[in-house]
């Protein structure tokens, strides 16, 4: 009798423990989702009413004058993304090709490891390096320096996704090309890369989505600019730095514009992510 109640007690204790721990897991999932909802709720709630056509077509106004926009910052962000791509994509994609096609050796392992290391380097540190590499020799803050910093930040993502996507191309494709007597480099460029194209595009978009919101490496490379500028050897405005400056400012109007800018930035990044989802989905449907 006694032993029966003992096992019963243990049984209920185990049941209770099971219920308790499972509830904790559910609760933590709920808590993890809350900040996402809060951030989107606030960004849309506070930013949406400040967005109108002027916001995209006008320049920032001086303090005290309400209204105005950030056309220059939007343009600046696009230019910086372009410069970053010019710096980062060739290095990233070619290194990715090396790793996928020739990198099954010790040196490949080392490069792969270094790519991982590079992806862990804080963006602010990359900014410092871009400062010593570009700003100091040019004696000037410039869009180019910002582009170099962003380009370095793109490299790990582009390299690893390119490698993985090129690896996915079946070897029979390569063998078919070689069997026709096409040299290997042409097989790689014309057959393998073309097959992996959507995959590599995904990696590129992913890297762009990552760097579009980067602020820290731009603070002392691209610096920021309150005027219209497209010159790559001059300081240039960007949405993230704009948000930073306007969020810190003690003017309510500016703070509200910071929210609006954040909304535009999130919107831009969402477009990139949705394109990625679209590209990958149509890819898998084809297969």
């Amino acid at each position: 009798m006694k032993s029966a109640t003992l096992t019963n007690g243990r049984f209920y204790r185990r049941k209770a423990m099971n219920f308790f721990m499972n509830s904790l897991a559910w609760a933590s999932a709920l808590m993890a989702v809350t900040p996402v909802l809060l951030i989107f709720f606030y960004t849309v709630g506070k930013g949406a009413s400040y967005i109108d056509l002027d916001f995209f077509t006008h320049m920032p106004r001086p303090v005290g004058e309400p209204g105005g926009g950030m056309a220059n910052a939007i343009l600046g962000t696009l230019i910086l993304l372009g410069l970053g791509s010019v710096v980062g994509l060739p290095i990233g994609i070619l290194a990715g090709i090396y790793l996928a096609e020739f990198g099954r050796n010790k040196f490949g392992e080392v490069v792969r490891f270094m790519t991982d290391v590079l992806s862990g380097v804080p963006s602010i540190v990359v900014g410092v390096v871009a400062y010593t590499l570009v700003v100091l020799p040019m004696k000037q803050f410039s869009a180019l320096a910002g582009g170099v910093a962003l380009g370095i930040l793109m490299i790990p993502t582009v390299t690893r996704t390119s490698e993985e996507m090129i690896r996915l191309v079946p070897d029979s494709y390569r063998e078919a090309g070689l069997a026709l007597g096409i040299p290997q480099w042409k097989t790689t460029l014309r057959i393998v890369l073309r097959t992996a194209f959507t995959g590599i595009t995904t990696g590129v978009l992913l890297a762009m989505a990552r760097i579009a919101g980067e602020t820290a490496p731009l603070l002392f490379t691209a610096l920021g600019n309150r005027f219209w500028s497209t010159a790559i050897d001059q300081p240039i405005a960007s949405l993230p730095v704009f948000i930073y400056d306007y969020a810190k400012a003690p003017f309510e109007d500016w703070n509200n514009q910071a929210w609006a800018a954040a909304l535009v930035l999130i919107f831009m990044i969402s477009i990139l992510s949705f394109t990625i989802r679209f590209v990958t989905r149509s890819r898998f449907q084809n297969d």
Binding site: A32, I39, A212, G213, I243, A247, N255, A262, I266
Partner: peptide, 15 residues
């Protein structure tokens, strides 16, 4: 949550 830029977290943090 992983895709939200750091600066937007900061903005949300301040306000």
């Amino acid at each position: 949550l992983a895709g939200v830029p750091s600066i937007v977290y900061g903005l949300w943090g301040i306000f």
